[in-house]
Simulated scan of single mutants.
Amino acid sequence: MTSSSNCFFLGSLVVSLLLFLGSTSTMALTKDINSTCYRYSVDNSFVHNKTFCLQTLTAYPPAVSATNMVELVKVTLDLGSTQAKERAGFVAGLEKEPTFKKYFEMCSESYATIVNNFRGARLCMEDGAAGAAGASITILETYDDTQRVKDTIGKNTDKASKKLMEMTLVMEDFVAIANAAISVIF
Rank of each mutant, 00 (worst) to 15 (best):
V115N: 05
D158I: 14
S161Q: 00
G80L: 05
A133F: 14
V73G: 05
V184N: 03
K50G: 01
L94H: 09
L29Y: 11
A160N: 09
G93V: 12
L169N: 06
K85M: 12
A66G: 07
L13I: 06
N116D: 11
S161I: 04
V115A: 03
S108V: 11
T146Y: 05
V64L: 08
R148F: 15
L72C: 12
L18M: 13
V115H: 04
G154V: 00
S136P: 15
S5D: 14
T36S: 03
A88Q: 08
S25D: 14
S108H: 12
H48C: 05
S5W: 15
S45K: 10
L29V: 10
C107H: 00
I182V: 09
M125K: 00
Y40D: 09
V64G: 00
V149L: 05
F90V: 06
A176R: 07
S25G: 02
Y143T: 10
T24G: 06
K50L: 04
A176N: 09
S161A: 11
Q147H: 05
D145S: 14
C107E: 06
F20R: 08
R122P: 01
Q147S: 09
N116L: 10
M125A: 09
M1P: 15
Y143F: 14
C107L: 01
Y143N: 13
V75S: 08
L17V: 09
K31N: 10
L77A: 11
V14N: 03
T2R: 15
V75T: 04
V170Q: 07
V73R: 01
K159Y: 09
S183I: 00
V14Y: 14
S41N: 08
E95D: 02
R39G: 08
P62K: 02
V14D: 09
F52G: 06
K163D: 13
T152N: 14
S110A: 07
F9I: 10
N44W: 08
K155A: 15
K159R: 04
A84I: 07
A132S: 12
E166L: 13
M165Y: 03
A133N: 12
N44E: 14
L18G: 11
G22R: 15
T26D: 10
L18D: 05
A178N: 09
L17Q: 06
A135I: 13
V170P: 02
T99H: 04
G128C: 01
G22P: 08
T168G: 03
A121K: 00
I33T: 01
F46E: 11
K155L: 13
F100V: 02
V115T: 02
E141C: 15
A63I: 01
D144R: 08
R87G: 01
V184A: 10
T142V: 14
E172L: 03
D151L: 09
S81Q: 04
L13F: 15
C107I: 04
